[in-house]
Simulated scan of single mutants.
Amino acid sequence: MSTTPRPEPADALGAPADRPRPPRMRADARRNREQILRAARAVFADQGPDAPLDEIARRAGVGIATLYRRFPERADLIRAVAIDVFTALVEAAREATDAGRDPLDALRRFMHAALDLKIGSVMPTLVGRVTIDEILEAVRQDAADPVEELLRRAHEAGLIRPDIVFGDITMMIVRLSRPLPGGGIPEDEALAHRQLDVYVDGLRPAGSAGPGTRLPGPALDAAAFKRFRGRVMGGGSG
């Protein structure tokens, strides 16, 4: 499998390394920004992108004026949350790929990290507000690529059943990171991580129902997943 050069990394604000960077923020300003983005991620997951900004400021422990200084428009905050989540997802995928550990264990660690980011709760709420092309332009990397590499390594090592494809990894993360109906269940996150471990163990060759038995339904490889993601979020159809 040929390797392609990695894109230039983005800085902490999502600006590509080959573009002029904005002035470095003071430590307190950077901390406020991170708290706002973390709070917004949780509130958007719970209440959607039209949630009250006052609630986001309250959870972040900052005044509403501070929030507006950082993000003058709601659209600015929504875009920043999407880029922040996707940047963290890319970092988790790169860490797992570069660690040189057992590829199935690396895949497991990445999936748990993605679960903690609540990717399946946050990103669906932002559909129609930000496109995948906007996110990728800012982040300049795609978590799908290192995850596909991890999957290839696991296949080559014989650690997972041969009919497991890219979509079986990503779509399960999306499903498990959505909250249980009713909300407010304290054990929800812990249950999701437990169920993820059960699922990953089921990816092993011994998890096959029997010789020659293949999984039913559509099989989304990485290219098909990217097209699917583009249809859902807008853009990214290539």
Rank of each mutant, 00 (worst) to 15 (best):
R59Q: 15
A144I: 01
F166L: 03
A80D: 03
D142W: 04
I78S: 06
Q141L: 11
R152N: 13
A99V: 05
A99K: 09
D50Q: 11
V165E: 10
G217T: 07
P16N: 12
G184V: 07
P218D: 09
D50Y: 11
N32A: 14
L176S: 03
D201N: 09
P146D: 11
G63R: 01
L67D: 04
M25E: 13
I185K: 04
A224F: 05
G184I: 04
I83D: 00
A75F: 01
E8S: 13
A222M: 12
V127E: 15
T125R: 08
P20E: 14
P9I: 02
E137T: 15
L215P: 01
M1W: 10
L150G: 05
G238L: 13
V62C: 15
I173W: 00
A10P: 07
V198H: 12
P218M: 06
R33S: 00
T170P: 03
M25R: 12
R59F: 08
Q47K: 13
L115I: 08
G48L: 14
H155Q: 13
G120P: 05
D102G: 11
R19D: 12
R229G: 09
L191Y: 10
T87F: 05
D98N: 11
A114I: 09
D168H: 15
D18V: 07
G63W: 00
V165P: 00
L115C: 01
V232P: 03
G158Y: 14
V130W: 00
G202Y: 04
H112E: 06
D221I: 13
D102V: 07
I56S: 02
D98C: 04
R19P: 04
T3A: 15
P146N: 11
L159Y: 05
A106W: 00
R21L: 11
L203A: 00
G63F: 02
A106G: 13
R101P: 05
Q195T: 11
L191Q: 11
G238S: 15
V139K: 02
P52M: 11
E189K: 14
R140E: 12
L159P: 02
H193V: 07
L220G: 00
P7I: 02
A45K: 00
G212M: 04
A88T: 06
E8N: 10
E156V: 14
D54M: 13
D102M: 09
R152S: 14
G202L: 00
L136I: 14
K226F: 02
F86G: 06
R140K: 10
A17K: 09
R161H: 04
P103S: 09
V139A: 00
L117S: 02
D133G: 03
A192S: 10
D84C: 03
L151F: 04
L53K: 01
R129W: 01
P218E: 07
T66G: 12
G230K: 05
R204S: 01
A93Y: 04
S237M: 15
R33D: 01
V127H: 12
L53V: 10
P16Q: 12
A224K: 14
A15L: 13
A157F: 01
A96L: 01
R94A: 08
A113P: 05
D163E: 08
G230W: 07
R129P: 07
T66A: 05
T3R: 14
Q47E: 15
A17T: 05
L191N: 13
K118P: 02
V43N: 01
P9V: 04
D54A: 15
T213G: 11
F71K: 03
D50G: 05
A82C: 10
G128M: 06
F166Y: 15
E187C: 08
P52D: 14
G182K: 08
